[in-house]
Design a binder for these strands. Structure first.
Lengths: 214, 214
DNA sequence: TTCTTTCATATTGTATACAATTTATTGCAA
DNA sequence: TTGCAATAAATTGTATACAATATGAAAGAA
């Protein structure tokens, strides 16, 4: 679509707010309010909502109305599981590829991570953490996989958790695990890489769960 | 959204046509034509298109216009790879679950498959084939994984190939492989299940590629 | 009080209208 | 013939209007 269409503007705006949790699950999105807030007509807003529905970020109630999708405890579990499935699969593909540039990138990201942690930039460290995992997915060169990973909102979900935790004895462990995965990739040690990744992902699980209890 | 809204009607209609290849990749979707064809206003059509864009089934040109997304050779490769990743991951989860009912279901599907092949119902056999793989995904109980699998258009893609092939010395092999996977699941033999599934999926690859060459 | 019923308000679903843009067609000159 | 400009037609992006539906508040009965 035209990059500058009004519908696109609304889409981007609402999407950002949802993904950054400024709009919480279950919240109702009223067309006229958004139309007014962004100075566009309701049809543009409607189109944006439809597109978000296609992305599963909002849903329409049976009796009308557009709502931000809720995250249930079940969802968190499913996302976690899905994430492991995707990342393990991607990692396996990387073992078949032997991409030097990729390994270099991962190492650089690890260094960024360490550095930010040591300086107390936990937000930045969290970003580096996300990037590490995204880079693994991208490394497969499979654009559909990348887009699924993105559309599952895994990266954002990840961010949110990290941002909240804050106090980070965990960070040191994260750093080590990342590095161990890279090392295993370098030395072609699949078992080590696999075990570390799974352990790494598992570690985050129960913290994640606390986020949605209500 | 209201199940019976006009936008939804258009959405379902166009979606079906795209997924069943009645609308081919690259085809332009003109709002007014569809509005007329389905006797609705253009806004309903527009909303439907936006939702399809969210699902990545269509895209909007920079100079306007809505087009059915093209399948490139690259896409086919990516889908195939993604499919393996998802199914292998799902299968692994099944090994951890030990779901008797699931195994029973898979066996029944295998029987349906054999029966239809033996009677020459190749279309039906193909449906059973799709169902076998979908059941594996569903078996994980992870609704997000299921929806990703569906949204990747893997089942449809699969159908299309099967429908075209028609002549089926392959079917016997397919049958055996399906049964072998179930047997391995029953006897908890992961390596056999894994090898068979991978081989099974690989077998379909180059036939799939012929479909998009142009 | 608490529960209905009634009515006013808010919100949505849909159609139509129109300006802006893109695409196709014609006519003309090289 | 080909290339190019001018113009007509088609198509899109957006706003407004309005009927249908849903929501919420007030009034009255148990």
């Amino acid at each position: 679509m035209k990059e500058d269409s009004l519908a696109n503007k609304v889409y981007l705006e609402v999407r950002k707010k949802i993904l950054s949790s400024q709009l919480v699950g279950g919240a109702r999105l009223v067309e006229s309010s958004w139309a007014e807030k962004l100075s566009v007509s309701r049809v543009a807003v409607r189109e944006a909502f439809m597109r978000l529905a296609g992305e599963n970020l909002v849903e329409f109630g049976e009796k009308g109305g557009c709502f931000v999708k809720k995250m249930t405890v079940e969802d968190v579990k499913d996302i976690r599981e899905l994430r492991e499935l995707l990342e393990v699969g991607a990692l396996k593909m990387l073992f078949a590829k032997k991409d030097k540039a990729l390994i270099k990138d991962l190492e650089l990201i690890c260094n960024d991570f360490s550095e930010m942690v040591s300086k107390g930039y936990y937000g930045g460290a969290c970003e580096a953490d996300v990037r590490f995992h995204e880079r693994i997915i991208q490394g497969t060169g499979n654009s559909r996989l990348v887009s699924i990973y993105q559309n599952s909102n895994i990266p954002l979900f990840h961010m949110k958790i990290g941002a909240i935790l804050g106090q980070m004895e965990d960070y040191l462990e994260t750093d080590q695990e990342h590095r161990q995965i890279v090392a295993a990739l370098k030395s072609n040690d699949w078992d080590s890489a696999y075990d570390t990744l799974v352990k790494h992902l598992d570690r985050g699980e129960h913290e994640a769960l606390e986020l949605v209890e209500d």
